[in-house]
């Protein structure tokens, strides 16, 4: 047990929290961007998978990780557009469309992986490229803090920067105002001539963009290959993280960090030879518990407001 506590308190542990948080954070921001406009993007899982696959493939073909990243993100955005088209134009049920696209992503990536590499499990036989890690000059040399914050994958930095960008976008820009209006009362938005459809399209594209970055991180940073269904529920966990964080990007970030911590802990436990099957389920159990606590807290909050008001009454206020 001592071993575990020691490793959890190490700089390396915090470094790895940030690392494993990255894809979940991208997914959570993606969930937020669509949720604000009133769309539940359950396809995040598939969008990430798509991007992870095309990122690897295109980087292998072109020899450039950056072009790979571009292709990965583009594939996620494209699939996100498909979700928008089916939901908004063909009036497909949003959740079922999301499930279908997740299936599509899972099926098509395996199908193509086999076609391109002759392997159904992973792309390890394909020579692909990864995006670089970045040292931050000033911070790098500070003890402990430098170990935690510096030397991360470039997409990790982009993920945390995106938190501020997304928050600004939603709460300060005209687009953000329109997205919030569409999400809260689409009729109100429509009544002033805003095209609800166009706003929802836009937010789904932005959502796809985030998911794409998250997916690319998985196969071009977290590891250096694509594996069948490698997202492993991270898109769904991102949805849960956003649900915990409410309609704020900061909230989504804290939610994502919580799961990052759970996942990093589960790796630490593996190091002391607790079976990986057992530790692998921890982030998911953690999500469920967090969802319960959150839902309960919301109910308690309502109760408390009412009790407080009633007690005022009795005192004669």
């Amino acid at each position: 047990m001592n071993e575990v506590i020691k490793s959890i308190l190490s700089a390396q542990f915090f470094y790895s929290v940030l690392r494993v948080t990255t894809p979940v954070l991208f997914a959570a921001l993606g969930a937020l961007l669509s949720d604000v406009a009133g769309v539940i993007n359950i396809a995040l899982e598939g969008l990430m998978l798509m991007s992870a696959f095309w990122g690897v493939m295109v980087s292998a073909w072109t020899g450039s990780a950056w072009i790979g990243l571009l292709a990965g993100v583009a594939s996620a955005v494209l699939l996100s557009l498909a979700l928008a088209y089916f939901h908004l134009n063909l009036k497909t049920d949003l959740i079922l469309a999301g499930i279908a696209l997740n299936m599509f992503a899972s099926g098509s990536t395996v199908f193509l992986l086999y076609l391109f590499s002759g392997d159904k499990g992973s792309s390890s036989s394909v020579k692909s490229y990864v995006l670089p890690n970045v040292d931050i000059p000033g911070i790098k040399n500070i003890p402990i803090l430098g170990d935690i914050l510096s030397g991360h994958h470039v997409l990790t930095y982009i993920a945390f920067l995106s938190v501020f960008v997304v928050q600004y976008l939603i709460y300060k820009t005209p687009l953000g105002l329109r997205m919030r209006a569409v999400g809260e009362n689409p009729n109100a938005a429509q009544s002033v001539g805003i095209s609800v459809k166009r706003i929802k399209y836009t937010s789904l594209v932005l959502s796809g963009l985030m998911a794409g970055l998250g997916g690319a991180f998985l196969s071009m940073g977290y590891v250096s290959w694509f594996a069948r269904d490698m997202t492993n529920g991270r898109g769904f966990i991102g949805l849960a993280a956003q649900a915990l964080g409410g309609k704020s990007a900061y909230g989504s970030m804290w939610g994502a960090l919580l799961f990052g911590a759970a996942e990093a802990t589960s790796y630490t436990l593996q190091a002391i030879r607790i079976p990986s099957e057992f530790t692998n389920m921890l982030p998911f159990i953690f999500t469920i518990i967090a969802l319960i606590i959150y839902a309960r807290a919301k109910i308690m909050q309502i109760k408390k407001i009412r009790e407080k008001q009633t007690s005022h009454e009795e005192v004669g206020l």
């Binding site: 089916f86 063909l90 497909t92 079922l96 469309a97 499930i99 279908a100 696209l101 299936m103 599509f104 899972s106 099926g107 098509s108 395996v110 199908f111 086999y114």
Partner: peptide, 12 residues
């Protein structure tokens, strides 16, 4: 796995 893709299209 091609059939998974077709199933997805059918759901849509």
């Amino acid at each position: 796995e091609i059939v998974v893709m077709l199933q997805a299209i059918m759901i849509l």
